[in-house]
């Protein structure tokens, strides 16, 4: 049985060192100008350092170029794609077809991961992007376990799924927090809170709290719970899912590292000693729960939840 890759989102080059020790196999990094909802900001120099460090340990670096681009940045994509290739990164993660165009012109054949988040919902379309340069599809987090497994069975590309962390529910181009403060006559608050990531929308009817923050890509609203399926990895491993991602956006470095350690152990057990995994999985889930802040419960995302329409 192949062991799925454990992919994490470090906040800094320094964290990558610790993450390698903790057991991560691959890293998703980038900068806000081109990438969405990253755990850290990596300028070009830091991307190079990250690649050197990861490769030294046989690990991989994927660079996020997955924003929704407007003309201005679309014109810069050749330059950035050339940089990523030159830096020796292992793949570019994209959602916008403009990136496919830039790679065709600037770095033909460079590996792409198709990751448009909410709209990666079926195997046919995963294979469609496979024919256009994607070697991997990163599936929407709103899919059931059965749908994920069926997609893997039918896919000609690698399949990556998120197994832990928060997910984005909403992205607007408008600065919605700034607009609210402006409406409230609290314009000075906008400056004060620039770049802060500690605000929540309280949905009283559902007793939920949704993290909300603004950056260069607009306003992002995140899921009220962190998904965690550390105790449900067996079916995904057996199906041959290629990569398990822990998304560590809006979490602390310490949290991310501890979570990586837990999943390293879970994946190793699940593949090498499945009986032992069965025995220990409840305990690992409890250990994951112990890492959570009070206002962020764990759940299993959409893996076992039915949606209608």
């Amino acid at each position: 049985m192949n062991k799925p890759e454990l992919l994490v989102t470090p906040g800094s080059v320094n964290e990558i060192k610790k993450q390698i020790e903790a057991g991560a196999d691959a890293f998703l990094i980038g900068e806000q100008r081109y990438g969405l909802r990253l755990a850290g900001e990596f300028n070009r120099q830091q991307v190079k350092e990250a690649v050197a460090l990861a490769h030294e340990h046989g690990k991989k670096i994927y660079v996020a170029v997955n924003a929704i681009f407007h003309n201005e940045i679309a014109n810069e994509l050749d330059d950035y794609v050339a940089f990523v290739k030159g830096a020796g990164a292992d793949a570019i993660v994209f959602g916008d077809p403009a990136v496919v165009m830039a790679v065709r012109e600037t770095a033909p054949g460079f590996p792409l991961h198709w990751s448009p988040e909410t709209i990666a919902t079926n195997y046919y379309t995963a294979n469609y992007w496979g024919k256009r340069g994607a070697v991997r599809a990163v599936l929407a987090r709103e899919l059931s376990m059965d749908a994920v497994i069926e997609t893997k069975e039918q896919a000609d590309v690698q399949i990556e799924v998120q197994v832990h962390g928060m997910t984005c529910m909403f992205q607007s181009k408008r600065p919605l927090l700034g607009h609210y403060f402006e409406y409230m006559g609290k314009s000075m608050e906008i400056q004060k809170r620039q770049g802060t990531q500690n605000m929540l929308l309280h949905d009283a009817e559902r007793s939920n709290k949704y993290p909300i923050y603004e950056d260069a890509n607009g306003t992002h609203i995140m899921s009220p719970n962190d998904m965690c399926i550390i105790d449900e990895l067996q079916d995904l491993v057996e199906a041959g899912i290629d990569s398990f991602k822990i998304d560590g956006v809006l979490q602390t470095e310490e949290y991310r590292i501890e979570t990586t350690k837990l999943y390293r152990k879970a994946i190793d057990l699940c593949v090498d000693q499945p009986d032992q995994y069965e025995e220990e999985k409840e305990g690992m889930l409890e250990a994951a729960e112990a890492l959570q802040q009070e206002h962020r419960p764990l759940d299993s995302g959409f893996f076992f939840k039915e949606t209608v329409y």
């Binding site: 988040e117 709209i119 992205q171 607007s172 609203i221 209608v308």
Partner: peptide
């Protein structure tokens, strides 16, 4: 951004 919102999925289990 149209297509990039799943508030309904989370809040009411409607896709």
């Amino acid at each position: 951004y149209s297509g990039r919102c799943v508030l309904s999925n989370h809040m009411t289990a409607r896709d």
